[in-house]
Simulated scan of single mutants.
Amino acid sequence: MPQLLAPTVLLHRAWLEAHNEWGPGLHEDGFGLSASDTVGSPAGFASWVSALTRSPAVHRWLVDGDQVLGGIALRSGPAEYVRWAGHIGFGIRPSARGRGLGSWALRQMLAEARSQGLSRVLLVCAAENLASAKTIERAGGVLEELRQTEHGPVRRYWIPLSD
């Protein structure tokens, strides 16, 4: 049974396995990983986890037993960054896709957004990422636009949070 857990150094090995499965690059949205983060060593990983827990965003890892299956974040930092990346970002490791984990985690994070008083949230995904687009649409996402960015075309969705 998967859980959403706050980032912890106790999952270093499991997190690295998930990260390595994605391959090189920064494409695990939801983890809050940046190019300057050094997560391979225990000290670097501990520093990164500490920074995540101090950030204004709510970061959660999808964990099942001793495996990290993905990550999700509710961002509340600078408005400009949220307009670019969205309020919520998520990523599921390749071997765990197709099991509904992204939908489940997104529903949990939408509840967190409601509890923070948000009336709607923005989610952004690459235009060609049809799996994420379908996950967002199933959660009530309404396509605002397709937009060309410096990183390629993206889909921008709003999910209203009123009951």
Rank of each mutant, 00 (worst) to 15 (best):
L33V: 04
A46Y: 04
A14Y: 05
T53F: 00
A43N: 08
M1C: 02
S76Q: 14
A127N: 13
L16D: 10
A133N: 11
G70E: 01
I88N: 13
F31C: 03
L69H: 01
R120P: 00
D163Y: 05
T149L: 12
H151C: 08
N129P: 13
T8P: 02
A113W: 10
D163A: 15
D29N: 09
H27C: 04
I72Y: 01
R147E: 12
A14G: 07
F45C: 01
C125I: 11
S47E: 14
T135I: 13
L143Y: 08
M109E: 05
A51L: 11
H87L: 12
Q3Y: 02
V63W: 09
W84I: 08
G98N: 10
T149A: 10
W61S: 03
R147M: 06
R54I: 00
A133L: 12
A6K: 04
V63C: 14
G40L: 04
R93C: 04
I92K: 05
G44V: 09
V121C: 07
A85H: 13
L11D: 14
D29H: 12
W15T: 05
P42G: 07
P94F: 03
S132W: 09
S41Q: 06
Y81N: 06
T38K: 06
V121N: 08
S76R: 14
E128G: 14
I92V: 15
R60N: 01
L110F: 09
L26F: 13
A133E: 15
P2G: 06
G86S: 10
A133D: 13
E17V: 10
R13N: 09
H59C: 03
D37K: 01
S55M: 03
P7F: 08
G86E: 07
G23N: 11
G25W: 09
L161A: 05
L69D: 02
S50P: 00
W84D: 06
G70C: 04
W22P: 01
L74R: 03
G71K: 00
T8C: 01
E137N: 05
G140T: 07
L123N: 11
I159V: 14
L26P: 00
G98C: 12
G71A: 11
P94M: 04
I159D: 07
L106M: 15
Q148A: 12
